[in-house]
């Protein structure tokens, strides 16, 4: 109620005193970072107020064409101009695409996994405003020397996303998003999946102990299981059970188990079991 009464009083007063009233006219939209002109009718000086999402301005101005600089209109959103109790609103919209925030997940992925690599691209202008107009976006995931996978899409409300299969080869895959001249790259480490099979051999060491060693441990796509992976060798004989958690080194795990006349040797990595060897007796 109060603003209405105020406008009414102001209207009556300004009908008699021409210079104090001002009708404010603004463009409907302004691009972020570009200046604009506010038209306030009448003449003489007055105070201009501008409220927006990124600022609040108070300035003594001459009625007529009032310049507002691009610096004052960086943040996208609705701005309200107030001159002599009259007001008008306009929207600042995002400037052209300048930056992509690319959230890629995961940073490591097993090889040949379906829809396991996800990327979300958030498109920004140079002033941290989301660019809301639909823009073509291309995602590409490839290990060097591989064709990889590419997906083209269009952004919606400033976001584009993709879900891709990981490649069959292990290694650092380049996950790249491109839109116009802007390109952002992430590295997704494609790693070997679980070992496909573990083959172990055993021989007697000079001191009588049993030396056990695996063949190169690989996943089902032929990628070497990373060094440092735990491989557990176990020997069960009359004296009990002996176990060594060996680490794969240069693709192979090896360990020394205590000497035994007759033992059952087994090998496992995580929940994947390898072959079994009956040591001694018939061997």
């Amino acid at each position: 109620m109060f603003p209405l009464r105020r406008s009414l009083i102001l209207g009556i007063v300004c009908a008699t005193v021409l210079t104090c009233a001002a009708q404010v006219r603004v463009p409907a939209t302004v691009q972020a970072g570009s200046g604009t002109t506010v038209q306030a009718s009448g003449s003489g000086s007055t105070m201009l107020y501008l409220f927006g999402p990124g600022g609040a301005l108070k300035r003594e101005v001459q009625r007529g064409n009032i310049e507002i600089s691009g610096q004052e209109l960086k943040v996208a959103g609705r701005y309200t101009v107030i001159v002599d109790g009259d007001s008008a609103s306009f929207f600042v919209t995002a400037a052209p695409l300048q930056k992509i925030a690319f959230v890629a997940h995961p940073s490591r992925v097993p090889a040949a996994a379906s829809r396991a690599v996800q990327g979300s691209a958030f498109l920004f202008d140079g002033f941290q405003n989301l660019v809301l107009t639909p823009i073509p976006v291309t995602f590409r995931l490839a290990v060097e020397g591989d064709n990889g996978e590419e997906r083209r899409t269009s952004s919606r409300d400033g976001v584009a996303w993709v879900q891709l299969n990981s490649g069959r080869r292990s290694g650092p895959a380049h996950f790249v998003v491109t839109s116009g001249a802007i390109q952002v790259r992430r590295i997704v480490q494609q790693v070997a999946a679980d070992p496909c099979s573990i083959r172990m051999s055993a021989l007697r060491a000079p001191d009588g102990n049993i030396l056990v060693e695996t063949a190169p441990v690989q996943d089902c796509s032929g990628n070497a299981v990373p060094d440092g992976t735990i491989v557990t060798f176990t020997s069960v004989d009359a004296a009990g059970r002996s176990a060594v958690d060996a680490r794969i080194k240069r693709g192979i795990a090896r360990a020394e188990l205590p000497a035994s006349r007759s033992a059952t040797l087994s090998v496992a990595a995580g929940v994947v079991l390898g072959n079994e060897i009956h040591w001694g007796g018939g061997q």
Partner: peptide, 8 residues
């Protein structure tokens, strides 16, 4: 939009 990894 809710990103596949739950981060946005």
């Amino acid at each position: 939009f809710y990103s596949p990894d739950g981060s946005a």
